[in-house]
């Protein structure tokens, strides 16, 4: 019962992958959707569970991406070793930053994480000798699993599907565990959480690091899939897009993040047909969703269904 959503997710995504392996919207856009799902679910751990805010998650994505890119192109390291190095670097940096940054709350925390994102972005643009500057880095080798070189769209689709499923699994597991409850308690009332014996500073720091490391791993995978990375992929706008996914789907819900990520990936693809109206419609749809479904698309839908179900039960009891 706990993992039923994950099974549905797997059934749908694997089904689509098997049925339409050559469809552009499945293999290409689908892969992008998986990236967004991994990132949104990771960010939801920090934002939705613990009730904090980060406008700088693109920085961690960038650190993972560039570490992988640099280590594999210049030092010929195995992609998985490079990915671990990126994750460790992100882990170290986020651990170092967590305590001072997470003392801040609300708007102040948003400002601090925003600053982090911008600093990393400036670094990536300016330090041309290392990062290739605004042009970025290219020629990044594909990953190899055993002797299989992953370089077709549909292969990536299934690999990213597996990583997304793992991220969702982690998120669902954490929800019903000691630390997951501690995080949600911090979201509900930080003072009450402390009074119950929860070291809130430590819990927030831990989930910040966890979220950052997952984001970094997604970044590493991204460079191998694209074979290219530039600072544009880890800009402030991307951080905001991730926050939008989490909020749009429904804060605090793992599948809310999944839905938010999927919507924000597919919506622009379909709106392309409206040409110059695209951006206008995109903005209007997001605004309407937030006005009419303030809890997010997924959470509001689930609430609605539950409400309907309960009313029906009450009516049944009343008539019998």
């Amino acid at each position: 019962m706990r993992l039923v959503g994950l099974y549905i997710f797997l059934a749908v995504t694997i089904g689509l992958g098997l049925l339409f392996p050559d469809n552009y919207y499945v293999s290409v856009v689908g892969s992008t959707a998986f990236f967004h799902i991994i990132l949104a679910v990771a960010l939801n751990l920090f934002m939705g569970y613990a009730g904090q805010i980060s406008l700088g998650h693109a920085a961690f994505f960038g650190i993972g991406a560039y570490t992988s890119a640099i280590l594999t192109t210049r030092f010929n390291l195995n992609p998985f070793v490079a990915m671990s190095a990126g994750a460790m670097l992100t882990g170290a940096l986020s651990t170092l930053l967590a305590r001072p940054i997470l003392k801040l709350k609300g708007h102040y925390l948003a400002m601090a994480t925003l600053g982090l994102g911008i600093i990393v972005h400036i670094f990536l643009v300016q330090e041309e000798w290392l990062t290739g500057g605004p042009d970025g880095l290219s020629g990044i080798p594909p990953i190899k699993i055993a002797s299989l070189v992953v370089d077709t769209d549909i292969q990536w689709y299934f690999i990213l599907c597996a990583v997304s499923a793992m991220t969702i699994w982690i998120s669902l597991n954490l929800m019903d565990s000691r630390m997951g409850r501690a995080l949600r308690a911090i979201h509900g009332s930080e003072i009450a959480a402390e009074v119950l014996g929860i070291d809130t500073a430590s819990a927030k720091a831990q989930v910040f690091v966890l979220s950052a490391v997952l984001t970094s791993i997604a970044g590493s995978l991204f460079v191998h899939q694209q074979a290219f990375i530039s600072p544009d992929s880890c800009s402030f706008a991307f951080s905001v897009e991730l926050v939008t996914m989490v909020v749009l789907g429904g804060l605090g819900s793992t599948f809310g993040a999944v839905f938010g990520a999927a919507i924000l990936t597919f919506l622009p693809e379909f709106l392309v047909h409206f040409e110059e109206l695209e951006v206008l419609l995109y903005g209007a749809i997001l605004m309407c969703i937030m006005i009419f479904l303030p809890k997010g698309v997924f959470v509001s839908a689930v609430d609605g269904v539950m409400h309907l179900f309960q009313r029906r039960c009450v009516r049944d009891v009343g008539s019998s």
Partner: peptide, 19 residues
Amino acid sequence: VKTACHTRISSGMISGCLR
């Protein structure tokens, strides 16, 4: 109420993630 049992159990975030 379960949240209040925090100090009576001990599993960390990683073990929680991996269940």
